[in-house]
Computed example of a mutant assay.
Amino acid sequence: MGSRKRNSAERRKEALRSQYFARLNDVPTSPRKMRLVADMVRGMEVNKALGVLKFSTKEASNRLEKLLRSAISNWEQKTEQKAENADLIVSEIFVDGGRMLKRLRPAPQGRGYRVRKRSNHVTLYVDTKKSTNVTKEVADGTKS
């Protein structure tokens, strides 16, 4: 590996150490259905988001609740603090399309209809309210 590539990889790893996230790959649900649930909890406080996901009737909410608990656990592990004491929020959540299984379904008169079984990847970032406000101010240029 070249030195430039190694340096950029080390910078990327260092940036990830200061972020608290959890990732869920190849969820056998269409990205559109998962985005509906992800939009419900985006920007919410963690405890409120857990309540919303627990009582949601959507099937994707169970998987997202488990992912949120994992992200909280990652935050606790990295900061060595308890989540109850901190004001944690879901700072960022996004759903990307995963691989697609392509199948054929029998149709009338010898034809076949395509069935695309979609999957998705979900990434959820958790952060404290204070640090999120500071990063937004620095990005906006309002704080020096």
Rank of each mutant, 00 (worst) to 15 (best):
M1V: 09
S3R: 12
R4Y: 08
K5Y: 14
R6M: 10
R6V: 09
E10T: 13
R11L: 05
R11E: 02
R12E: 08
K13R: 10
K13E: 09
K13W: 07
K13Q: 05
E14S: 10
A15S: 03
A15E: 07
L16W: 11
L16Q: 14
R17P: 11
R17T: 15
S18I: 15
S18V: 14
Q19H: 04
Q19A: 09
Q19M: 13
A22D: 02
A22C: 01
R23F: 14
R23I: 10
R23D: 15
R23T: 14
L24P: 03
L24Q: 09
N25S: 11
P28F: 15
T29A: 08
S30R: 02
S30K: 04
K33Y: 01
M34N: 00
R35E: 14
L36C: 01
L36A: 06
A38H: 03
D39I: 02
D39V: 05
M40R: 11
V41G: 05
G43V: 08
M44Y: 06
E45L: 14
V46S: 13
V46E: 15
A49G: 05
G51L: 05
V52C: 07
V52Y: 09
V52R: 09
V52N: 08
L53K: 06
K54S: 05
F55M: 04
T57E: 06
A60Q: 06
S61F: 01
N62D: 04
R63P: 04
R63F: 07
L64P: 02
L64G: 00
L67I: 15
R69V: 01
S70Y: 08
A71H: 00
I72G: 02
S73M: 03
S73Y: 03
W75L: 01
W75Q: 01
Q77D: 07
Q77N: 01
Q77V: 02
K78C: 06
K82M: 11
A83D: 07
A83G: 10
N85D: 08
V90H: 06
S91W: 00
E92R: 13
I93V: 10
I93F: 12
F94L: 12
V95I: 05
D96V: 15
R99Y: 14
L101Y: 11
K102H: 11
K102D: 06
R103D: 05
L104E: 05
P108S: 07
R111Y: 03
Y113A: 11
R114C: 13
R114S: 10
R114E: 15
R114D: 12
R116Y: 10
K117F: 03
R118Y: 07
R118S: 00
V122M: 03
L124A: 04
L124C: 08
Y125H: 05
Y125E: 02
Y125K: 03
V126W: 05
V126N: 04
V126S: 04
K129T: 10
K130E: 12
K130I: 09
N133V: 13
V134Q: 10
V138P: 14
V138R: 14
D140F: 14
G141A: 12
K143S: 13
K143L: 11
S144G: 13
